[in-house]
Amino acid sequence: MQTIQAIIDAIAVGALYALVAVGLALVFGVMRLINFAQGELITAGAYSLYLTRNLPLVVSIVVCFVVCVALAVAIERVAFRPLRGASPATTLVATFAVAFALEAVWLIAFTPQGKTADLLSALNRTATHGSLHLRWVTITELVAGVVLLGGTVLVLNRTTIGLHMRAAASDFRAARLLGVRADRVIRAAFAMSGFLAAVVSLLLTVQQPLVTPTFGLDVTILALVGAVLGGIDRLATATAGGFLIGFISSILGDELPASLSNFAPSFTFLVVILVLLIRPAGLLAPLGQSGVDRV
C-alpha cells in the first residue's frame, strides 16, 4: 500500500511539473525561446495569493489568474516583442534579465523572508480509502493535470488560434505569409503559459505555503530540465519529460537518505549534460532528429 501511495503522490507531482513544462513548450514552440521568466509568473501568482489572503477565496483565485496572465502578456509586450528577430542569444539573455529583474522586485517588495499563502491549506486534509491516505491536493493535482493538458490539446487542435499556433511553431514565416498575425499567436502562447502558471501557483502554495522570491524558479528549472530532456520542441515530449522529472524527483525525495538527496540537483544536471550530448533533440524525440535548430 505504501508503494502505491508513493506512486500516486509521485504521479501528482509529475502532473504539476508537466503543467510547468507545457507552459515552457508553448512559448518555445512559437518563439524558439526558453522563457526563464516563466518561474516568476508562478512566484507572482503566489505573492498575489498572499496579498489577497484576507479576501474571499474566489476573489483570491481570480486575482491570481489575472496577475499571472497579465504579467505573462506584459512581459512579452515589453521585453520580447521589441527583440523579435534578434538572435536567439539576445532573447535568451533578455529572459534572464526579466527573471532577475522580477526577482529583485520580489526581494524589495516582500523581503527574503517567506510570506505565508495558505488559503488552500484545506486541501492538505486527507481522504482515506481503505489503507490509502490521499491528500486532497494530490487528487486536485491529478485532476488539474488531466483537465489542463486536455484543454491545451483541445485549444491547439480545435480552435483557429490553436491552428495558427501550430502552424507558427512549425514555420513561422510561412504562417505569416498566409496572414497569420504573429503578435496574436505569440500573445496567445504567453497568455496560456500565464494561465498554467496560475494553476501551478495555487497548487504549489498548498504544499509549500511559504512564498520566497525563488518560489517559482526551483520548479521551473527542474521542469525545464525535464522538458529539454524529453524534447522541448514538441508539446507531447516536453510534457512527458516534465512529468517524468517530477515523478522521479518525488520518488527520490522519498527514497534517498538525506545525505544523498542534497546532491540530487548535481546528479540531475550531470544526467542532463550526458543526455544532451548523446541525444541533443531530447530523449523522447523521434530517432534521426538531430537537434532543435529550426530558429
Binding site: T160, L163, H164, R166, A167, A175, L178, G179, V180, R181
Partner: peptide, 11 residues
C-alpha cells in the same frame, strides 16, 4: 484540410 483553413487567416 488544416492547411487550407490556414488560408482563411488572410481572408
Amino acid at each position: 484540410a488544416e492547411n487550407l483553413r490556414l488560408g482563411l487567416a488572410g481572408r
